[in-house]
Design a protein around this nucleic acid. Sequence first.
DNA 1: CTGTTAGCGCTTTCAA
DNA 2: TTGAAAGCGCTAACAG
Lengths: 344, 344
Amino acid sequence: VTSSPLTPVTLNDVAREAGVSLATASRSLNGGNRRVNDAYRERVMAAAAKLNYTPNLSAQAMAKGASSIVALVVSDIADPYFSSLAAGVISGAEKAGLIVTTAVTHGDSERELELVRALRGQRPRAIVLSGSRYAGEGSQKALIAELKAFESTGGRVVLITQREMPFATVLFDNYNGARSLAVTLVQQGYRRFAALAGVDTLMTSRDRLSGFMDGLEEHGISVDRQHIITTDFTREGGYRAAIELISRDIADVELVFAVNDVMAIGAMSAFRDSGRSLPDSIAVAGYDDISTARDMTPALTTVRIPLEDAGARAFELAFASEPRNDDLITVKGTVVIRESTPHR
Amino acid sequence: VTSSPLTPVTLNDVAREAGVSLATASRSLNGGNRRVNDAYRERVMAAAAKLNYTPNLSAQAMAKGASSIVALVVSDIADPYFSSLAAGVISGAEKAGLIVTTAVTHGDSERELELVRALRGQRPRAIVLSGSRYAGEGSQKALIAELKAFESTGGRVVLITQREMPFATVLFDNYNGARSLAVTLVQQGYRRFAALAGVDTLMTSRDRLSGFMDGLEEHGISVDRQHIITTDFTREGGYRAAIELISRDIADVELVFAVNDVMAIGAMSAFRDSGRSLPDSIAVAGYDDISTARDMTPALTTVRIPLEDAGARAFELAFASEPRNDDLITVKGTVVIRESTPHR
DNA sequence: CTGTTAGCGCTTTCAA
DNA sequence: TTGAAAGCGCTAACAG
């Protein structure tokens, strides 16, 4: 097959090759409703195959006024939490014949806003946002305005984990998950706790922490302020916080709850590096159940949230037949007790 | 601001609002070379801001015959290996103002081919492919043809890790990395090894295995066939293979080398579940240095490859000023000895 | 420097 | 059913 270089094959080429009109070629290749003579149709298909034709998605998007794109915004695609979510969104989208564009904010809200604007340019069918949105942030208003503008032109917005925004949302029941975890741990005999949390404006962190604390309180247990450390929401943050905790005298602390698994894993390494054996000298629990949690030694007690499934549901929410902005899917967590928190 | 619903603001709207021609509006907003009166320019900017205008990327792509998209194809975005690579590609692309679309093959070559075709429809500037390509596969020809067709229309193709394909490639020096690892382990006193590998047609696996074997051979050590297990390239594969290994009598095996970290981690869990303490009863080494490797207990000995950096370099390769198909970047690995392989 | 105009590739009325 | 033709929103000659 010889085609002129640097110029992709167009539908026109296919039509000419098949000896039919452009319209017929278009209808054969796409026109859902078979409004075209079989003989023609086959000739078109053959020509398309012969020329190795690929429809220009931009042109299609222009002509029909709707793209086949879903935009996904996450904080950090290398983080297993977000990459699992992304896997779910992508698998849903691919099943529906849609393409996913991925952008990364690194937790920066300014950047998030910029990205949403840029992605809007693609005129995606939906934007799925799963950053770590902070409560009551100034830029929140601007983001909402931007997303509202997107919706007003027919786009769909779905949030994962960001509460109190006027859009469809997939929510993890962080409060109750953490609460159940606390209750279970108390039942296991733990009484004295410490906690590693993200900044208080980070909803996910706040909900998990307060759920955990409330669970303890039900059993009359409270946690010393000294034993709650605020740190980055990352492995390194967990590591540093654990070191800090050690320096604050934790002789009587039996268990450290980190608001996510990567922090818990960092903390475990810190404890070990400081010469403490796990789980004997101190127990650790996390949240998320990322895939390596069970491979830790001791295997990490945590709350499992079905991340990939949640990503898939976010996608579905975006394409629900009757979408509403108060759509809210709450995904429950399941307490998973492992060796990092043995019975006392 | 009231704009008609369901119809995004167009450049025309902006031009009208600013009282200038369409061309002037276009030049103000984009036209790299400032060929426009400052007064006009400002009016256009103001109008654009007021109307919250976002350029339609599809339209731009059509008009200039070039999109702002980079397509990325990976086997599994939830796998830390690929998500780190993706993070690198995405960060490079975002710096360059490009958008990344991500597709997932799940290791299926048919699907990979389909995806490449579909992605071609976006007329991306480049396609970055980082699946687990198998050597000498039938579908390889079709894939090459498809990618060549893409190149012939001005697109760039960059492969990560797939050797012997006529495209620019970022290669990991798997053979030598594994060889160094073997030599180092022998120096540490190990003599009797077992290995967990992927199918032999999987290049990455093959190279790592043969490098490791050759490294051992330099020291006159060979590995019993019984002690080389072929399995899936995943955590589960590693787990199953370790169980299988145990059933084959490994009383004399001192160290198990898994061709990647997730397999090694699976194997560690299997050994532990079978009541073997690590690293006393058996040592384990992996490859990749995914982020959780150092958080294992014992911390996992492995070969570090700078995944995110490699992703970024793949992106750069795609936009090299003078791209050539025989461009080849080889990324070296660094042996990282940790507690999973103590001195004997 | 600015405006007019001709497309980019495709879908979709509208006639035939 | 089929074909001709009018756009979709934008850029890039081409004239003024």
